[in-house]
Every structure is written in C-alpha cells, then in structure tokens.
Nucleic acid binder design. Structure first.
Lengths: 356, 356
DNA sequence: GTTACTTCTGTGAACGTTCCCAGAAAGCGT
DNA sequence: ACGCTTTCTGGGAACGTTCACAGAAGTAAC
C-alpha cells in the first residue's frame, strides 16, 4: 500500500532501532491513537489530558483506559510549539572545573531557584558551560525557545553568554552583576559593604598589619570585596599586601598566605576572599607555627561549611546563597508575567567566631 | 481586515506583554519571514540554516542578510517535532540538600558526561530532584520527548524515577546500580572489591581493632562498601563496630567516630565510607587527643579534595568520577545509535598516604 | 413551543519546522 | 538537437498538539 491513514497506530518510525533486525520500534502513540481507541475525538482526549471541565464522566473513563491501553504520553515539542511556551527555565552555570566542586554557593543557589520554580510549576534545567563550544550550544538552546527564561550564575566580565542573553531579550536574571554587563536585572549582595564590615571588625580587634588574599577579579564579587577591603583600611591600605588569584580556591589561600608571610613576616591579620581561601590560608599559618587568632586573625566570606570545619572556626560574612537563587527565580517569573523587573540586593551579616 | 497572510511578519502575539499598554511584543520571526524578506522560499532558507549543499552563493548571502535583518532564530520546538529528536540528554541528580554541596563526585560526573555529549553535539540538561513534586515533573519532562536519553546519578533503592525511566524505554544509563532496579544499563565501580582492598591494607599495617563508619545503605555504594569491609575482616568482623548513617557527610564522620571510641576506646583503625566522613572522623580523633596514624589509622573513599586537605593526608580509594560520567554518557549515546548497551565496571586503585 | 442557558463533543486551523518530490536551469558530451 | 547529469529552487505534506468555534443535546423557565 502506497499510502496510509494519518491516524493508524501501526505506522512505523522512519528510523528503526536497528540493533535487532527482527524487531522494529513502533511509533509513539499520539492523541489520535487514543481518540480512535476510545471512540472519541482528539478534542475530547485533549480536554481529558489537560484536566479541563466540560467532559462527561463516561468520556473521561473511556479516554483514560484508552491512554493506558495504547501507552500514550504527550509530546511536549508539539505542545510547546502551539502554546509558544515551555514552562522551563534555564540555569546557566559558567564555572571552571575546579570551582564546581569547591564552591558551596552554587548548590544552594540551584536549590533555592528550584524550589521557587517548582512551586510555580516550572522545570529548572541546568546547563553547564565548560568550553567555548558549550557556550555556543547553550546560547542556541536558550534562543530556540526551549526555555521561557534564564538565570545566569557566576558570569564573568563581558561574558559572551551574557551578551547573548541580552540580545535575545528573553526574561533573565543574573546572580551577581558582572561589570560591563549593562541593564540586565540581577540579584546580589553588597560585596563592598559586607567586606568593609568584616574587615572593620578585624581591625577592631587591634590588628594593624592586615593583608588580603583576593580572588576572581574578573567578577563583581571579587572586585567588590577588594574594594571593601581598600576602603576599610583607608590610608593604611598597602597594595603590597594584596595578592590576586584567579579563583576562590583552597590552594589560592594556601599559596597566598605563604607569600604574604614572606612579604610581611609580622602580619597580624588576613582577609580571605572566601571561606575556602581562608581555610587554605589557615592551614599555611598553622604549618608555619602561627597561632590563630592569637598571632594572626583571619576572616573569610560565605559562611559555608568550610567555616565550621576550620580549626578555630572562621569569622565570616554570611551570604544567603539559597535566597539569591530564590530571588533570581522570582525575578525571571516576574518578567514572564510582564511585571517590571527590579534589581534586588539581599542583606548579609557578619558572623563572629574564633578565628579573629 | 479580517484575515491575514500566514507569512505576514507583522502579526502580533495573542498575548501581549502587558506591562506597557502602548507597546506590544512582536511575534518572533519565522522562516517564512526570512523567506519573503530574501525573496526566496522556505525550503531554501531551511537549507541555508542547516548548512546543506545545493544552495547558490547568491541565495545564501540573501538569506543570511535577511536573517540578520528580521532577527530570525530557529524555533527548536518545531524542529524537534518534525525531526522526532531533541539532541539533548537529561542528567538527573537525586540528592538530598546537604550532599549537593559535600559530594565532590557529582561535579566530576557532570563534567565528564558533558564533555562526551558536547563532543557528540548533544546538550546536557541537568534536572535536580529535591521534592516528590520534582520527581513527577522530571518524569514528565523525560517522557515528553524533550530529551533523547538520560543519565541518572545517585538513585536510591526502588527509586520512582528509576522505574519511570524503565517504563519509558528511553535510552538511559545509571551511574551506580541501585539494588532492586533490574536490567537498566549502568556504569559503576566494584565497591566491594575496592573496600576490601583498602581495608586489607589497613589490616596489613597491624591494626586489629577496626571499626567502620558506614553511610547511605540505601544505595549500592553504601551497601557494597560495608560488604567489602565485612569480607575483609572475615571472622574478626564485629557488627558492634559498624555505625550506620544516612548520608556521606563530615558530620556523620565526626559523630560516628565519637560513638566508636565510646564503644571501643582501644580502637586502632577506622574505615570511613567516604573522604568527607573520614575528615569528620579525623577531626574527632584529634580533638580527643589521638594521634593519626600512630594511635589510630584511618582510611577513606573517593580520593576527593578532602583527602589532600586532612592533617595527615588520607589513604583512600581513587574513584574515577569523571570517567563514570563519560562512560554513562557513552552508554546512552550507544543506545541511541541502536547498539547493544553493556554494563561497564571501571577500575579503582588504592592511594596510600599518611593517615594509615 | 419558543427561548435561553449549560454541558458536552467534533473539527478546522494554526504553531514553525523538515523532508521529499517535482521540476527548472545549467553544463556537457555526443 | 538531444539526452544525461548536476545544481538549485519551490511548495505540499507531515510532525502532534491546542485553541476557537460550531453545533448537538439536555434542562429550565416562560
């Protein structure tokens, strides 16, 4: 036969499964298959699957058993096409290898965003960017309409994905505000003020020779924490006592601390750009026989699990990572609903423990 | 006018953006808009966007400038619908809150899988399951045809998502083999043998009173490591010296160690079910004034960054997490290509450092 | 019996692509 | 002039839904 009915459920896929020549994969059941099995129409089946009113109890039962019989599951591509929405939100993680393991904030942001989106019945899909190739593919994914919006975390200065998102004009929110990325809604914390606050308290304990291990100056968080440090010290600021590393890592802390001690053996205070960095720095200090906090005071940033695991527990800045995730998700949803998107700054607090 | 051409680019969306009543969001440009702007047909535009041969240089240029002019981007839903594929692979992360931060394996698996899929031009989309509601939504997402396959990591015994995936008969691979989940392809390591190997070496250093802090017995990894411990000790196995915790956490290690010492103050060896657990255990030991490894030897599992950060560095089992991710991705791709899917066991090795 | 309303069902049209086929145009050898 | 191949283009059909509309059937009020 050279032609076939569009509604026949026995039509085969163009591509067979191939691994077993005797068996051929059947085409997925469609709404039409259900309709004919139930002796009803497409429309009624659609109404049942979508839980609409105005369908008789008998029809509903017939459709439901037909669905079970033919093994129907709705094709989302077709649905998304006609509805012009996907009810999915992308979350773009742009992190170098190492940080995906070390940065505890990412997980919290993710879960925070997920809980908000889940409640609004949106699916969170995380896309990670590891190579330049990924960057292109992720941009295509976002542009193709497979998501209704996007949350971008840890974007760097003039990140290609950031400009891509802006050009698409798709509802989006950044977590953190990469310098050089104009006018995209974001949520964040005031890194400058938070850094200044904790450094002030470090100074208040009488430290006078204070250095900083700064990281990730290609991000707002890195730059702003350094700026906070600078303004807290005021005229006492000594650029020689600031070391810069690309990433917030334990290793950066360990190496940075060693170098700081070389430059200034009588150092009595350190501001580490994150808790992981602080942990590394503390390890070096203790290896070299310095007592914390007696000889050297040290403070971190994040209030992550690192802070509690250090020998003397870390004084640090509590950063509400999960709230950042939640707020970013809310920002995206608001835009989808056509509301004005407002930048939101979340507050931080200083947690004073034993390390300084 | 009561009707309009299907190809008119000025048609408006059914739903306007609403936040600004004077402005109305224009419909996204379609391939037809490009075609009429370029004075060519749909077919030719499609050929250009898909980089097919048999299109003249002039046509190509005309199409490209038309695309730029109208701001066309391809609608993936329509494409997926007609092609019956999405070129996306889902990766399902089913972890309790805490582990998303503490388990370094997850990040490695993710990046491993991503690199393989990226090379094959598939988009990896990660779906996290945090609540029962998520579980349902993720299952719907997978079933809807939005992904061509799935990798499931850290599934637990009789995980609902596992059975859902099996029923769908979608190409899938597990990382680890949850007990009670039959005949789904998976990749994994031989946890029993690995645990036995490292415990044997612990015994070889002369320890005779050895306990274990076991975790996650609802997973194959947890059960098998315990089994390895049991068989390594043989008749010397003492169930009283095995403590069970739900999750692989630092806290489990710290608490477990305290309890072990209470039960058996002269304990001289500990097998911790993961490096994080070992780190917690070591902290407790040192707090209580025991020297590691002189008084008590301790070994972990994973060879994660924890291992290098412990005071005496951890002896542990090196688990190739990134390779697990790669292998799982390859397994899914193989199934998509119709090949037979084979279970793959990856080899581990014992890393001997200072902790025992 | 008419009118009006509610409940329920069927169907055409649309969503935006890709695929396939028909055929035009061009090149080339005879 | 003819046939054959290669290159290139256009348009019909299909993918599987949802939506809007039309109308049937039933109920209720007058």
């Amino acid at each position: 036969m050279s032609t076939f009915s569009s509604d026949s459920p026995v039509r085969q896929l163009r591509y067979s499964i191939g691994m077993d020549s005797t068996r051929v994969r059947r085409r997925r059941a469609t709404i039409n298959d259900v309709a004919s099995a139930a002796g009803l129409s497409r429309g009624t089946v659609s109404r049942v699957v979508n839980g609409e009113k105005y369908v008789s109890p008998e029809a509903k039962m017939a459709v439901e058993s037909a669905i079970a019989q033919v093994g129907y599951v709705r094709n989302s591509a077709a649905r998304n096409l006609v509805r012009q929405e996907s009810r999915a939100i992308g979350l773009i993680i742009h992190e170098p290898h190492s940080l995906l393991f070390e940065d505890p904030n990412i997980g919290s942001i993710l879960l925070g965003a997920n809980s908000v989106l889940s409640a609004a019945d949106y699916q969170l899909v995380s896309l990670i960017i590891d190579t330049a190739r990924d960057s292109q593919r992720v941009a295509d994914y976002l542009r193709g309409g497979l998501v209704d919006g996007a949350v971008i975390i840890s974007a760097r200065t003039s990140d290609p994905i950031a400009t891509a998102v802006r050009n698409l004009k798709i509802p989006a929110a950044f977590v953190g505000h990469p310098p050089g990325t104009p006018d995209i809604p974001y949520v964040g914390i005031d890194n400058v003020a938070a850094a200044r606050a904790i450094v002030h308290r470090l100074l208040d304990t009488g430290r006078t020779r204070v250095g900083m291990i700064a990281c990730a100056l290609d991000r707002d968080s890195g730059q702003d924490r350094l700026e906070g440090f600078r303004t807290a010290l005021g005229p006492a600021f000594d650029p020689d006592l600031v070391l810069e590393f690309p990433l917030y890592t334990y290793a950066a802390g360990a190496d940075g601390m060693a170098e700081l001690l070389r430059r200034r053996p009588d150092l009595d205070g350190v501001f580490a750009a994150s808790d992981a960095v602080a942990a590394g720095a503390m390890a070096t200090l203790q290896e070299q026989g310095r007592r914390v906090p007696d000889d050297v005071g040290i403070v971190g940033f994040d209030d992550s699990s690192w802070a509690l695991r250090c020998k003397p527990q870390l004084s640090t800045v509590k950063q509400p990572a999960d709230l950042l995730g939640r707020a970013a998700a809310e920002l995206v949803l608001a835009q989808i609903e056509g509301k004005e998107a407002e930048v939101r700054m979340l507050s931080t607090s200083v947690v004073w423990r034993e390390s300084a």
